[in-house]
Structures are given as C-alpha cells and as structure tokens.
Design a protein around this nucleic acid. Sequence first.
DNA 1: GCTTGACCTTCCCATGATGGGAAGGTGTAG
DNA 2: CTACACCTTCCCATCATGGGAAGGTCAAGC
Lengths: 130, 130
Amino acid sequence: MNIGQAAEASGVSAKMIRYYEQIGLIEPPARSQSGYRVYAEPNVHTLRFVRRARSLGFSVEETGSLLALWRDRSRASADVKSLALKHVAELEEKAAALQAMAATLRHLASHCHGDQRPDCPILDKIGSAS
Amino acid sequence: MNIGQAAEASGVSAKMIRYYEQIGLIEPPARSQSGYRVYAEPNVHTLRFVRRARSLGFSVEETGSLLALWRDRSRASADVKSLALKHVAELEEKAAALQAMAATLRHLASHCHGDQRPDCPILDKIGSAS
DNA sequence: GCTTGACCTTCCCATGATGGGAAGGTGTAG
DNA sequence: CTACACCTTCCCATCATGGGAAGGTCAAGC
C-alpha cells in the first residue's frame, strides 16, 4: 500500500503521515525499491489511532504518550485514565474560557441597537472598559 | 512615553506592539531623535482597545476591522452588532466542539477501572472505534 | 516501445500570535 | 565615566497543517 492509499484508509493526509514520521511519532515504514513508502495494515491501524486521538483534542505530543501506552501491554489502566482525565480538565477549561468570551460579547451586543445609528455600546466598552 | 511604558500602560507586550505595527494593525508612532518609538495617550488607548478585542477572542485581523469601525464615527451600529454576533457564534461553536471532545473522553474514562490492571477501554476505543 | 497522467520523493515556504535572544545603540543615575 | 536599564533591528522557534516546485516512478493505452 502506498502513502496515498494509507491516507485514504486512515483519514490522515499524506502530508501529515510524512510529518508524523519525520517527528518520530510513527515508525518509518518499509520502502519499495524505488523509495516509495509501503504501508501494511498495522501501520494503517496506528494511523487511525493517531487520527482519533487528535480528534479528541490530544496534541501530537500527547498522542505519542497515548501510543506508547497503547503499545505497552503491561501498563496500568490508571496511567491511561489519569492522562485522559487531565486532558478532559484542559478541554473543559478551554471551553469555559471560550464561553465566557461569548457570554461577555453577547451581553454587550444585547445592548446594541443594531440599526443605522452609530452609537454602539460594544465598541464603547471595548474602548474603555477595564 | 517609550515602548516599555506603553506596554506597561496598555497590557500589550513590547514585542507585540512592534508586531502590530509591523503588520499594519496600528499606526507607526512618532520616533525620538535616536529612533526610539514615542507613544502618547491616544496610542495607548488604541493598544488597550486591541488588547480587549483580543481577549474577547477576536483574531488580529478581526481586531483590525473593529478598530476601523471604532474610528469611523459614521458607521451604523448594525455593522458592529453583526460582526460581534458572528463572532459569538464562532466562539460558541468552538466551545461546543471542545465540550463534545471532553464529554466523549470523560465517558470513555468512566468505563476505565483506573487500577493496576492493563485493560483500558479508553485506548481500546481510540484504537478501534469508527 | 513510447507517451501520458497519476502517483511518489524531498525540499522550501506560509500560516497566526507569541516569545526568546543576539548584537549593538541610547539614556540616566551614581 | 561607568554601570545598568532600556531601546533598536534581525533571526529563530513554536504547533499542525497545507501549498507547491522539481524531479523520479509506475501502469495503462496506443
């Protein structure tokens, strides 16, 4: 399987597969005589793991830790759980920060007429609030 | 006022003030004979505006639009309000995405014993779920 | 066999917002 | 006059991703 097919099968772009290999997140695959990367099913499986970890908001580095845990059959599930819950806390913190911004701005907007007149408490507040 | 004092007074780092100037977000300030940037109160006011817009999650480019609206005394408040509400929608979308990740992961974690045993539904799911 | 087009390779550049730091000039207080 | 704090510009790094150029490879069709 060439990189294009591995990309198709895993949902990870060819560009990113090469990048993940370059930074050491995934193992370099076999190469054909002409230098093409050749992927087998286990490689694709790993790529899918990476894609899903990324889609759960883990950074590439954290994904590397997850991969290591995944491959280590003797790890304690407590290690995985603590990593996951720490990440959950970070996600929730970021979500809360975004929602606080949205709430503030929505509040400002609710006081803005939104018509032809220039008066606008949104800009007034951004320009003078503490 | 030199750039350090303007940074102190506005809450924007000297590095970022130079960057904002370089990309054209803010006007180049006056210069002293020796080439030092010299800021007056209106400059600091603008910097504070930028800082607050950024802290509400507006990108630098969006902040530029807000600045233009702020300086344009004849703009309609409807223009400001629509920009603000569009941004609110984006913020809420991002927050919802993060919370969905957190919820998924929290759900997976709730099924993980978190003890010395290696079995872990978190990794199992990341490794095999669709 | 030869051409064509789809694929692959590596290499470099760009993004967005920010910080770090080097090399060198300036300004001020003691 | 010497320190020291500040300023200047310039380059580099981050994080994850995409774009694209220049050139090699492979398979299908003529």
